[in-house]
Design a protein around this nucleic acid. Structure first.
Lengths: 371, 371
DNA sequence: TTGTATGCGTTATCAC
DNA sequence: GTGATAACGCATACAA
């Protein structure tokens, strides 16, 4: 632990305000302001004096003072569950790209998928006087903080959520995408399927996907898909996930609520000695780039989180300019074919009688704690 | 494109300030302030009146007014190259977790790896009167904006950079990590190696890795590793990458400057009909989680970006409390073994005479444009 | 214990 | 053309 040699940096002047500029230029504050903002008349003479003074002093406006007087902070608040999830991170990056040119800055908060935390976060953002809000949260339809934003007249755009409570949302049609997966499964002859979810309770996206998946399965007269809710630990521990899968030996296809889960499923399947897609088909959701690069490229629903961010930003920008709230159509998704999806093995295709799988490798191990 | 039914939300009052509270409570502003902040005496009577008034009005402080008067914005500016890179996204998430409890909010900017953009971004953050700065940028040692921050007395912590110009940095020792990779290669008998870099010019991390890799190779009397600088396109197009690799047929091991590149190399190798690690060993950098889940788990240098963020946040917090700048030791990295690393094939191990590889699959195709 | 007045950095209004 | 001055929302020194 090394301490830097203590040397005070010469601070020309901690803060140089427009007042300093005016004094140095020998003019009034108002004049300086007019010159620096090109917002009013000024003689060529004083104009150049002010500019020189500003230059010399290294003046730059305080966004704070400006915000206070204009009651526009030029700041947009953004709440996402977590930036550790690349889907949200990319969306935020999408926001940035749009907002970059506009003078708006992003004030970011994350809730870690916690419904209480995200209300607090929004309240804090509002206190910071953000001009607008872009939000992905646990329960936008019941959020007191979001209601407060509305009361305060702060424009709000959602991301990822299906539109709710009159709030425009940049999203994909999760239900439709899930139905598409169900159709693919059905067309290939899969009957025993499951939906694998993480944080089902706190993600309406996940719930909407399941709903769509379930609806289409029923429409086709297939058995209801099993809903598997994973804990964080299970999702991150292939051995645990393998145990969970082993308990459901008659599944022939799994729809994972995101690509990471889908890849984890493949790992777990390997641990069990199952082969993908021969013994188990897997389809993911999101379409992360890495899925294409895998040995067995992942079949998935491809979405574009960055586009979601861009659309949300554009929507909010329009709101900020006084536009009426407009719900754009959902962003497109596409089914990305991949080698993880194939028809079930012939001996397992029959309706209700399924041939037993060979005993799983895992079940022979004893060193794995049950739990 | 559907427009919501136009309904004006009843805006109780766009802004409710402490003045409103005071009026409603029938007391002076100062008293209201004292009550609401617990910052001074107040009779039980007026105290309860103020609290009720605040409640009724739905009052909350304006962080803006506060910031202006206290000249502390309780905001930390953060600049990273891009949130689309999960390494930076996780680091920012790490910042969040630490900052969450402290009352500081994160104002985020990203530069898209552009040296001019990141100076602008810092200037903007400074204009927003951030209390501190956490930065990963192209050239911190030459940044005018960073110098301005110093002039203004704004504390700065770096992330990912090796410490520079007296600025503390949360980082790993990139050079040491790279030397470790060189040692592993050397120990296994690899002689013909390459370093694969993306955005070499704008990433000192990448350059430091190469420097360490090169140094250790020389120390061991091995030939200098080939430096392969990829364009964005090459990195994202396995076919293009394959072409690049095909031009270097005597390589037996590649050190990729991040895990995504490493995985892309594997894909490219497959396209060429090469097998990893039999025909080519690959080691990555960063240690992204997904690397473990692959069919052929990726050998890599494991780092913890979130820890980087947490350390940077703690360092800055200390600075904000008036502490002297302290450079903590670099964060640890570990070499993660993986099936992508093995000794070179016996017939290719000989010093300078390398057996030719079988003709690459790719070179037989004609539909790939050269470039 | 309480309230008035001042200033934080800006911009806008209004006299000059 | 120019320059005081009054907000903006808040905290605080100071007077009461």
């Amino acid at each position: 632990m090394e301490t830097f040699p203590y040397r005070r940096v010469e601070q020309v002047k901690a803060k140089v305000t427009i007042k300093d500029v005016a004094r140095r230029a020998g003019c009034g504050i108002a004049t300086a302001s007019r010159v620096l903002n090109n917002s009013g008349p000024a003689s060529a003479d004083v104009r150049s004096r002010v500019q020189k003074a500003a230059q010399d002093l290294g003046f730059s406006f305080s966004a704070l003072g400006r915000a206070l007087q204009s009651s526009r902070s030029m700041t947009v608040g953004c709440l996402v569950p977590s930036l550790a999830n690349p889907v949200f991170a990319e969306a935020v990056q999408g926001l940035q790209t749009v907002l970059a040119g506009t003078g708006y800055q992003l004030l970011i908060a994350s809730s870690n998928y916690d419904g209480a935390a995200d209300n607090d976060a929004i309240a804090t953002l509002i206190a910071k006087e953000v001009d607008g809000l872009i939000v992905t949260m646990v329960a936008p339809e019941h959020s007191a903080a979001l209601a407060l934003a509305r009361t305060r007249g702060i424009p709000v755009a959602l991301m990822f959520h299906d539109p709710v409570a009159g709030l425009p949302s940049a999203h994909v049609d999760n239900g439709a995408a899930a139905r598409e997966v169900a159709r693919r499964f059905g067309d290939l002859g899969h009957r025993r399927t499951a939906f694998l979810a993480l944080r089902f309770a706190s993600s309406d996206r996940s719930r909407n996907r399941y709903a769509g998946f379930l609806a289409e399965c029923r429409l086709r007269g297939l058995p209801d898909p099993v809903l598997i809710e994973l804990t964080e630990t299970e999702a991150n521990t292939p051995e645990r996930l393998a145990q969970t899968l082993a308990a459901l030996p008659d599944l022939t296809a799994i729809f994972a609520s995101n690509d990471f889960l889908a890849i984890a499923v493949q790992k777990a399947a390997r641990l069990l000695g199952w082969r993908v897609p021969r013994d188990l088909s897997v389809v993911g959701f999101d379409g992360i780039e890495i899925g294409r690069l895998l040995d067995v490229p992942l079949a998935t629903i491809e979405t574009e989180p960055a586009a979601m961010g861009r659309q949300a930003a554009l929507t909010l920008l329009d709101l900020l300019q006084g536009g009426a709230p407009v719900q754009l159509p959902p962003l497109p998704f596409t089914f990305r074919a991949g080698a993880t999806l194939a028809p079930p093995r012939a001996d397992r295709r029959d309706d209700d009688r399924v041939a037993p799988r060979p005993p799983s490798v895992l079940s022979l191990k004893t060193d794995l704690k049950q739990g």
